[in-house]
Every structure is written in C-alpha cells, then in structure tokens.
Write a protein that binds this DNA or RNA. Sequence first.
DNA 1: GGAAAATTTCCGTGATTTCGGAATTTCATG
DNA 2: CATGAAATTCCGAAATCACGGAAATTTTCC
Lengths: 192, 192
Amino acid sequence: MTDNSSTPETEVLSLLPTRLRTARRDKGLSLDAVAKLSGVSRSMVSQIERGESSPTIATLWNLTRALQVDFAGLLEGVDEPAGIEVLRNAHVPLIANAGQGCSIRILSPPEEVGRHEVYDIRFKENGILDSAPHKRGAREHLTVITGNVRIKAGQQVELLGPGDTARYPVDQPHTISAEAGPAQVFLVVQDA
Amino acid sequence: MTDNSSTPETEVLSLLPTRLRTARRDKGLSLDAVAKLSGVSRSMVSQIERGESSPTIATLWNLTRALQVDFAGLLEGVDEPAGIEVLRNAHVPLIANAGQGCSIRILSPPEEVGRHEVYDIRFKENGILDSAPHKRGAREHLTVITGNVRIKAGQQVELLGPGDTARYPVDQPHTISAEAGPAQVFLVVQDA
DNA sequence: GGAAAATTTCCGTGATTTCGGAATTTCATG
DNA sequence: CATGAAATTCCGAAATCACGGAAATTTTCC
C-alpha cells in the first residue's frame, strides 16, 4: 500500500485497520467467521486489519455490514470528551435576537454543529421563529413541552399540543410559532 | 466490477457514481481538473463515475477531499419522509417495564435507531433507570425539564436541576435516577 | 456547417487487490 | 511440555484497479 503520510488528512485512513479489528474482536468473531458473514476472504480481512492493503469500497462495505459498524462513522476522527459534561441552567448560551418573542437556549456543544444540535426554545405569546432552508437531508425533531405551537414546513402546516412531537425535513423554509399564549419546545436538528 | 445485485443493501453502492459525477458537475469542474486536485487520474475518475470500477477507499478519500463532499454521507441511503410527521401525545410508544418507577416515551422513529434516538423519560419519586453499556462512541445528551436527577456514568456522578444539561459517553454502565421527588428529562442518544 | 478546443472515453501496461489453500502461530488441555 | 484445535498469517494465481497517452465525442465559435 502506498502510504505517503505527508498530509495529516491521510492519516485518518490509518485508523481504519485498528477500528475494524477492534470491532471484530469486540464481537468475539474470528477472521473465518467474518469471512463467511461478509463474503470477503479470511486473508483479505487479515491484510486489511493489518493495514497492508487498502480495501475497495465494495469489500469495505461488505465488511461493515458483517461487523455491524457504521460505514459513515468509520472514517471520522475520534475526539469525544471522556467524562460527564455539565451545562448549568444559568450558563446555557442564549440566542435572543432570532425570530420574534423567542429565546433559544443552545444545549449541544459547538463540536457537534452540523451533525447534531439540541435546542430548548421558549416562546412568548405570539412568538415566532422563521428559518431559512438548511442543507439537503437535514431534519428537525420537535417536541412540545408546554403550550401550543404551529409548525410550517414548506407548504404543510401542523398544530401541536403538549407532549406532541413532529419530525420534518428542513431543506426548505420553515417556521415555528406559539399558537395561543407562551410555549416551550425541545428541538433536535439532525445533519444541518 | 462484480455487481451481484442480489442483496438490496448492495445497491447503495450503485448510488455512489452518480453522486460523485453530480458533485463534480455542480462545481463546474472537468475530469482533468479534479484529477489534478485529487491526484487521481482522469481515466480513473471517469471509470468510477460510470460505475465501471469500485475505487479503493484511499482513492475515494482523495476524491471526496477534492470535491469537498462529505465522505460519511456519501454512502447513506436517501429515504427520508417528505412532509411533517406528527406523533400525538396520546399515541407516543411507551416502555413501562424498564428500570423502576420510570416510564420512557419513545419520540424518535424506528428507522433512526442506532443513529439518533430521542426519549422523554418521566420518573416517579425514587425512580431509577439502569443501562448496560452501548456501542463504543455512543453518547447521551440529557436535559432536565422538571425535578432533580442524579447521573452516574462509569465512576463519575453529577447532580442536575431543572434546565441543566449533561453529556456523557455511554460505552460504559450508566444510571439516571430521580433525586428528591419525581422528575422529567429529555434524552437524546447518539450513535447507539 | 466546419475547424479548433475542450472534455470524455477507450486501451495497453504495471501495480494492487482478492482469493483459496498451505504454513505458521496461538491457545487450551491433559 | 507435548498434543490437537483453532485462529492467523504467508504465498502463489487470477482478477481488478490505476495510470498515461491515443481515439472519440461534445462544445464553442466563426
């Protein structure tokens, strides 16, 4: 394999072998077992796990299915904090000047932006939050804590009460608004 | 390339060529241009885009960098529902017999299991929820709506009040429990 | 239309992956 | 410490990927 470790980006590939081996061992599988499961030969699996060959996406795909690992995450860097991170109520970052009559509390860490954002949004009476389209494939997951809200995504409109949940694509203009009196909602944005 | 389209999963790979070509054309780049940018030869890029060969992850990686596309998302299927999905309070699926004195309301759709799970958990006084370790890299993101809770992840323990948020890795045993009186929390599980 | 330029596909060659089986190592057990 | 079984690594041969240059196609412009 041609490993010209010149660019730091390339080294991400060097993580793959160990990750695969770990995944297999964690499941207590032998090379032979995954070979049968994945259709990739024992020897190939061995070579790949030792970084002696750079697999075709086809074979890598088969391996990930057999090992039940997420193909997507396989190439990402690993840099998660170790312990419990606590964000106190008083210290939650706020966005006050978005929309009208609403304050957005940012509960997710900056590192996760784009993959996984969590917000606690509080609307005053008649509060409204208008959003421009995000990236294609992005979705929002909204649950009402208190009050009533109206969701508009593209053409469609829905009314939600306490405890209700809505999920919708946000690669289009969308609006959240308090319906009659104040409201509080919990919002998870996925793949924005 | 050996495209034995027997399993439906395999067809995900067939999406890759078009996606790459689209990405390139959208940027208005020629084969030659991406060849120079990525270090992959013109002809190879052409073959890959036409599905006539299944690239090595090494070369695919170089391509993604040149085209500035997300390697992770490149292999994901596209099957998200189009409109707003609503889940009414009364119809939220419940897990009653997990832990003691707590009921878990499942807010995320079954399709998302493993990537992105959202729960609304309600504890009675002294309620407790014990969980076995999940997959490595998994994290939980917990926000307290009402009451006080105690989080235990591995050795570490934290006490949270209303509005507080905690994030922690869950590739280890972890416990959530109501601290003094009942509590309600919002839980997002990532990459479980 | 026709010629020039650019873009893409085809083709021969060398490097790399992939496979199946043999050889080696590791591990449990008496 | 010997022995057998299991797991892993080594070793050809066949298949496929990857490259650079030539042919073919498409685009542009007069």
